[in-house]
Each structure stands twice: as C-alpha cells, then as structure tokens.
Amino acid sequence: MRAMAYQRKLDIKNGRVDLSHGAGGRAMAQLISGLFHEAFGNEWLARGNDQAAFDVGAGRMVMTTDGYVVSPLFFPGGNIGSLAVHGTINDVAMGGARPLYLSASFIIEEGFRFSDLKTIADSMGEAARAAGVYIITGDTKVVERGKADGMFISTTGVGVLADGLDLSAEKARVGDRVLVSGSLGDHGAAIMSRRQNLAFETEIVSDSAALHHLVALMVAAGGSSIRVMRDPTRGGLAATLNEIAHQSGLGFRLQEKAIPVKPAVAAACELLGLDPLHVANEGKLVAIVAPDMADAVLAAMRAHPLGCDAADIGEAVADNHRFVQISTSFGGGRIVDWLWGEQLPRIC
C-alpha cells in the first residue's frame, strides 16, 4: 500500500486561506477535516460523504435557507458563524417546528486568517451544540481577494412540525394581542456601533440567540391560540408587523410605553437618527396570540431566560388600510411604517 504523502499540519495561528483551499484537492480536504469537522464534530460529517442521510420524526418537515453577509464579521455578542446558526434555527422555529439539522456553505476570500476561520467555525459548533442541532453537511469555496468581503455563509435548516400546528399570518383576528419576547433593536445597534467609521463606546451586545426552546414553551402553553410568530430581523418590528398586517388584512395598535427598548439602544439610535422599531433583532420574536390565551403565553415566555423581558405591546384592530399605529408615550399617535431605503443616520 502506498504510504500517505507527508502533509504539513494546518497552521491555525498564522496561516491563511488561499485559492488551493477551495480547489477540491488535498488542501481543501485538510481544511475541512482539520477545521470544520473538528468544530462541528458529529457522526454525519465524520462519514465524509457529499450528502447526509438522516431520520425524521413524526410530523411534517420544515425547511428554510438564509445567507449571512454581516459586516463586521465579529461584533459584540457574536460573529457571522453563531449568527448563521441562530438565524436559520429561528426561521425553522418561527413555524412552531423543532429544528434538527443544518447545512452550511462557506464562501471565503483568499487571505482569510485560519485563526479567524477557526473562531467562526468553533462558535458555529458551539451554537449548534447548545441548541441541540447538528450541522451535517457543508461546502467550502474560496474566491479571490476582495470578492467576498471576508466571508459569506449560507445555512439551510430542516425541522419537524407537530401535527395540528399551522401558524400563519392570515389566522390573526381582531382583538388578538401582540407579544414580543424582549427588548428591541439590540442586534442592529450592536452592529452599527462596530461599523467602521462609526465606532462609539457602548455596552450594547447583539441579542443573537436560538429561540426554539422558547418557542416550544410557548406552543406548549398556547397551542394554536398562537396565530403566527415571526422573528423581527431586517426592518425590525415595524417591518414584521406591517407584513403581518398585509397578510391578515388587519391593522395593529401599539402602546409605545409598553415596548421594551434598552436605554443604551435607545440612546444609540437617537444618536444615529434611527428608530429602534426599524432596527434588526436576531434573538427576539413577535407572536400574535388570541386574547384569552395571551396571558398564559406571556407567562410561559417570561419563564424562559430568552423571554424574561417579554411584553404585551398592543392589539390587532380592524383597519382596511392595514396601518400599524402607535400611541406615543408623549400622548400623540403616528404610523409605524415599513422602512424605505437603507436605514442611515440623518445628517442634520
């Protein structure tokens, strides 16, 4: 038998990704086994096939996919890796489903530090383990410098949905309560605070987290009295509620003073000319719940660490225009509209 050719170990500390690491040769195999398998460690990956076969429990399957292009790659409270795991888990969970498996596809720029790659892969592995979800298949591509802003990650998630559960926006009814699981705007404000040119001292940390355990508690408490759940990511709570309003044909009326926003986030948004209701979250959910079960669901949320600041912030109302309106803490009213254009600070 021919002896394995000598291959130098990956120099995680000082090494960098080069084009050979995406070329399908041994360098790539080494990167995958030395870095990703190590970080994600599970039986499916260990078999080294191009696909993973797995069992699915009873119920219907749920599938979702999402791309992650966050800049900067590292931010207070996480990095692109943990975000790519949490975000996709949450998309599965918002349907009321239990997430099981993830795939991960990496597009990496040549010159990317192995040490950074390892940090990212490790935090993906950690996030998946903590969530009880496995990353069972993946792909790596390397592109020339300057072509991928460091790295992009795509993750796909599958999960199972218990029979009888079917959450959907059109199920919302007049009088339903609007619940949020905690303070709004943390993720976006954390990213903005780290953006190049805009660094300011804050203690704001991204809320990036996997919400499926919280969702399981809510479903146990409220069952199908939960009409719909969404995670208010890009465009924030405002975009999410406007979406639900459009799909359900209802309007919403919110109480500004009931909406949880951390003082530091409110201050940062003020400075940047942003509305916290437009700022992204990565570890929060909004639930529209039948009024008679709202308190029970809210209590279940508050019993979980990721829902301890959960709040009832308003109700669904009949409104042909499908407006999301808010009573300001100042005593007036206004519309909470979709965000148009890029959210950027005002200049005057």
Binding site: D275, S327, T328, G331, G333, R334, R346
Partner: peptide
C-alpha cells in the same frame, strides 16, 4: 428636526 419631532411624538394630536 422639528418635523421629525412633530411626527415622531404625534404632536398634531396634542
């Protein structure tokens, strides 16, 4: 900035 304050806080209602 004034317009923003009026709209943001719903001053027209007050």
């Amino acid at each position: 900035g004034h317009t923003h304050a009026i709209s943001r806080y719903g001053l027209e209602d007050i």
